[in-house]
Structure formats: C-alpha cells, structure tokens
C-alpha cells in the first residue's frame, strides 16, 4: 500500500521533468489471477509499443 504513494509521486514527477509518465505502469495483480495477469501484460506491452523506444534518460555506451 505504501508503494501506491511512491508510484503516484514518481509518475507525476517523471511527467514534470518531461519524461513520458505513461511509461510508468503500476497495478495490482494476484498470483491467482492468471487471466488478469495476461491482460495486464498485453495491455502494458501495447501501451509501450505505441510510445516507441525511450529516448530520454537513456545512456548510450560508446
């Protein structure tokens, strides 16, 4: 439950500095909810694919 507050502020702060806050995806899934788990992962991958590769705060190793 404490994670909830951390993620709320993290997402908002990332957005504020200009990193797409949509990349932060947070939810609750129980180990017994197989179907929901599949849906969450499917949805998350779709969202990230739509955003494309991250370009901000990415370290390039020369």
């Amino acid at each position: 439950m404490v994670a909830r507050r951390k993620f709320a502020t993290l997402k908002s702060f990332l957005n504020y500095i200009g990193v797409e806050g949509d990349r932060t995806i947070f939810t609750w899934v129980s180990a017994s909810e197989g179907d929901r788990w599949a849906q969450v992962i499917k949805g998350a991958t779709e969202k990230i694919k739509a955003l494309g590769p991250a370009s901000k705060m990415v370290k390039t190793v020369a």
């Binding site: 404490v2 951390k6 993620f7 709320a8 947070f26 939810t27 949805g43």
Partner: peptide, 30 residues
C-alpha cells in the same frame, strides 16, 4: 497526501503510510 514536510511533530512521513482516500487514477487497469 495533504502533508507538508516537517510541519508537525504528530505527523508520520507521508510515504510511510497510506489513506483510503489516496487518489487511484494512476493505477493501470486493463
């Protein structure tokens, strides 16, 4: 969270607790 850092001795650190009124719109629901 309605908390101002260090403004009262009675408060707990805001990230160390939660309330049922915390906003939930950032939680992902497929």
């Amino acid at each position: 969270f309605g908390n101002r850092a260090g403004s009262s001795m009675e408060d707990m650190p805001p990230l160390g607790k939660f309330s049922e009124n915390d906003k939930e719109d950032f939680i992902y629901n497929p």
